[in-house]
């Protein structure tokens, strides 16, 4: 069982974001970075599959500047076998060139599965996985919350609005992982030390010119304070009316 996992370096979300001068990027001062959560669950899924089968290889790929090697090493410290750094000066807003570069790196890898997160929490486009599948001509199953793989076939559960869908597919396939599939393991201290000794191959890539660019970035408007409409049972009719007419949630 040979599985590739594509991971992205993203800012940790519990910080307060500000927009950098120029208005098209966020200010990176004071931010911390980590592997995208959904990608961590994809790494975990790959590791569990390898452990369940007993043999195989988990290969982690990340595209971006040299700093993404930190995120690759995190996946290695969790137990992935080797890493591939697709070296590019920056990652723009157009996902197609990124997916192309990843697909090129994956094409001849002989992978039984290609795992990604459902989306990256920084830009939330969620298209990289499906585009890779398209470029490689592979079946694609998105937003997987349960996964079983046996005898060259996969069976996955997808969460839909108010329903669940069970799908089956042949391998190789591209799978994007949703919340709920698993909880990722913590890197152990030995794992962290061991990761430094695992192979990490650097391959420079040239991305196609982006056709999508960010023109303007804006923060959400300041939240306005709450409103007290009354107290006790007497206030309920007015509350219901506002929820219905103003907030339009009823």
């Amino acid at each position: 069982m040979k599985i590739a996992v594509c991971i992205k370096r993203v800012p940790v979300m519990d910080r307060r974001f500000t927009i950098a001068p120029g208005g098209t990027t966020i200010d990176e001062v004071g931010l911390a970075y980590d592997v995208n959560d959904f990608d961590l669950w994809a790494v975990e899924a790959a590791l569990r599959l390898k452990e369940q089968v007993g043999t195989g290889e988990v290969v982690v790929l990340s595209l971006g500047p040299d700093v993404v090697q930190e995120q690759i090493r995190k996946a290695l410290s969790m137990g992935a076998d080797r890493g591939i750094h697709l070296q590019a000066a920056s990652v723009g807003a157009d996902d197609l060139p990124v997916a192309r570069a990843l697909a090129d790196a994956l094409r001849d890898g002989g992978y039984d599965g290609i795992f990604l997160g459902r989306l990256a929490v920084d830009r939330a486009n969620g298209v990289t996985g499906p585009v890779i599948a398209e470029l490689l001509g592979l079946p694609c199953v998105t937003a997987v919350s349960k996964l079983e793989i046996a005898n060259g076939r996969g069976r996955a559960q997808r969460e839909l609005e108010g329903a669940q869908e069970i799908v089956e597919f042949p391998l190789p396939a591209v799978i994007t992982v949703d919340q709920g599939l698993n909880t990722e393991r913590l890197p152990t201290l030995k794992g962290i030390m061991g990761a430094k000794k695992k192979p990490l191959e650097v391959r420079p890539v040239t991305l196609d010119a982006p056709r999508v660019t960010v023109r303007r970035l804006a923060l959400p408007p300041e939240r306005i304070g709450g409103r007290i409409i009354g107290e006790g049972v007497g206030a309920v009719p007015e509350l219901v009316r506002l929820l219905h007419d103003e907030a339009k949630v009823l």
């Binding site: 930190e70 090493r73 995190k74 410290s77 913590l186 890197p187 152990t188 201290l189 962290i192 030390m193 990761a195 430094k196």
Partner: peptide, 10 residues
């Protein structure tokens, strides 16, 4: 160092 931060975070 990177691994010092990684250890702390774990």
């Amino acid at each position: 160092a990177e691994e010092e931060r990684a250890v702390r975070d774990s």
